[in-house]
Amino acid sequence: MSIDVVNITKTYKGFTALDAVNLHIPTGELVALLGPSGSGKTTLLRIIAGLEWPDSGEVRFDGADALNRSVGERNVGFVFQHYALFRHMSVFENVAFGLRVRKGADKLPEAAIRAKVSELLALVQIDWLADRYPAQLSGGQRQRVALARALAISPRILLLDEPFGALDAKVRKELRRWLRQLHEELPVTSVLVTHDQEEALELADRVVVMGKGRIEQIGTPGEVYETPATAFVHDFIGESLSLPADVRGGRLFLGERAIALDSQGASEGPARLLARPHEVDLADPAQAPFFGKVLAVRTFGPIRRADIQIVVPSGHVVVEAAVPFGEGLEIGSQVGLVPRRYRVFGAQA
């Protein structure tokens, strides 16, 4: 089932949570809504689910208006951030809930409910926990119950709110892969909310990067990392080295000094130059566009980083640069920086 979000706006007491958001999610795709807290991603998910209503705009499932249907009528599976398992029900009854509350012609006989629940528990690999209560389960197990419960109503759309947020790193990685597999096996369109870029980039077909109630970029994980559309996306996804600059007459300046780098068509006025630390080379300070003083050098695992203080018109900034292992870098010495790949964004981008 495809999802269309058209011009959705939502405000809470003067705070704009969503500002004219448009999004198309094709059938069968797994999309991640990625952004910092307060970016509106959870609000958007809850509006798609029908747990919240927008001030204006439309939500369409397969082209049909969804806003005139209540959450119960939309047939979406929703996995809540803290699982929201029914604490007084066993795992089995939690999963059976969506089948038991059906009325009239949709009502299933007890045997059919049992068969369906057993099948779901097997699918999420926790059939041996059927008689336990939520309080007796680990975080990962609760997550699986929450998923099985959401899948019990045979949803065509699966919505997940920070599904792995409360789990430790190892379990999170495991469940992530498993969720991806599950998505492949089921005929569902999935939308996942996360603030964890690694999760979004690893799991999703497409990533929707959100900031301050707006969509900053929609693209494949490769696209949002390699060609960020805005300075916000560049900053938010992956590591960034950021330097203030000015664009004057189409040329890039650091203070009064012209820099021998392309301004990439950024608008006149203040701008920011952004690069990935591993795409910045160290060089002789006399020949590099940027140079500064080495403040500290750190090594952790295969990565070596240096803090370099660069003098700019407004004072100085400290950037972090990758240091090759062979390179002996002395603290206090001057070093030049040459970005191999970089992006220049005007101040308003």
Binding site: F80, F86, F97, R149
Partner: peptide, 23 residues
Amino acid sequence: AEEEAAISLGASGFSTFFRVTLP
């Protein structure tokens, strides 16, 4: 959250109250 989960699974307000909130 549990009430929201219940209605998202298709329960009415009435049955959400008696199956989730009250217990």
